[in-house]
Design a protein around this nucleic acid. Sequence first.
DNA 1: TTGACAATGTATCGAACGTTCGATACAACC
DNA 2: GGTTGTATCGAACGTTCGATACATTGTCAA
Lengths: 202, 202
Amino acid sequence: MSERGNKREELIQAAISLFAARGFRGTSIRDISKACNTSLSNIYHYFGDKEGLVLAILETISEKLVASLREAAQEDSEPLDRFRCLVLIHCNVGWERSEEGKILFLEEEHLSQEGRQVNRRIQHEILDIYREVLRPLKEAGLLRGDSLTVTAFNVLALVNWFFRWFRNDGPMSLQEASEQVVSFAVNGALRIDSSVAGFSQR
Amino acid sequence: MSERGNKREELIQAAISLFAARGFRGTSIRDISKACNTSLSNIYHYFGDKEGLVLAILETISEKLVASLREAAQEDSEPLDRFRCLVLIHCNVGWERSEEGKILFLEEEHLSQEGRQVNRRIQHEILDIYREVLRPLKEAGLLRGDSLTVTAFNVLALVNWFFRWFRNDGPMSLQEASEQVVSFAVNGALRIDSSVAGFSQR
DNA sequence: TTGACAATGTATCGAACGTTCGATACAACC
DNA sequence: GGTTGTATCGAACGTTCGATACATTGTCAA
């Protein structure tokens, strides 16, 4: 009936949804096994224990979300456009995968030492992408703050909070809302002299 | 040994710390009772059940944090300064009471219908404070976005995320860091023509 | 002094938790 | 055709959970 490795992926997907909706402690492995019509012990066969399941989830997220952001960050265009593009992509991709995003920031305190490290590593990867994109803008003297890291934190704040307040059935479309976020991020982070052109001199 | 009503307050304070550190599901009422050297049943005597304890905590937070913000928002100064002041106060007071802040945003999914409503009400109160402070700036045509609400969300994003990344033992002081947040918030939210003066015409 | 009532403690409950176990079914390999 | 490895199962383990029942103490008005 089922191909090889299918159940494992199915379990991960179900666990992502349940963890995102009810949290780590709020979701029992029985809930997850029931959602996949399989047995408790099958989860232990695949992941060792409950935290092993979380680690597998984090791996999945790391591969998908971070890859999308890296792609956006490596586009070959002007630094400002690249920054704009990164924030916009992050809003859109992150909203599509908002369940995964919730897991990243919701559950750190319930994890063991190893789980915490993996979690931090992923968050650090994302932060680094932003720093990298912001760096040429800083070198061009466009950054408002002194610290690349603080600026990156602030931009990430906007994006991650966006996933909390935005509702698809609200008055704004995803496109409108994420453009608002981009605008806020650009103007909060950068000093823009109304002349956006003539920028790529360096 | 203990005065009347002391135990109740002691239980609330201990519960705030434990919930903030380990989450709602991660903290048992036994943990809380042990932290106060009292018995399980005392908690049920005072709060009815575990969620009643959370509701009592939310009441406490609502009284303290919201009151501080209201105070900052009602200062009699120029609208821009009032906005600046509100964000700054929020950063500082919120950091001092960061445990309470975590509870506000961490646990919604574990609460019952009533708990959710109380939680939303408090978040709505805070959002309204920001909207109120932003309104005169919008009427003066200084707001970048069309929506007061979205702008308020974005500012709240910066403040609430600040509580996540800021560390007292880091390279920046609380004052430096919160000023960075204020700067980002002001420039992200508002169109400022470098001439800040001559503003209070209305 | 006593009686009501709030405050606190002890003992216990059923349910749910994460985890482990021994046993299959089945495919692949030797 | 025996051996091995993987996927899956149901049952049970010990622990902890939120909650309750009931007894005891403390306090203060009648």
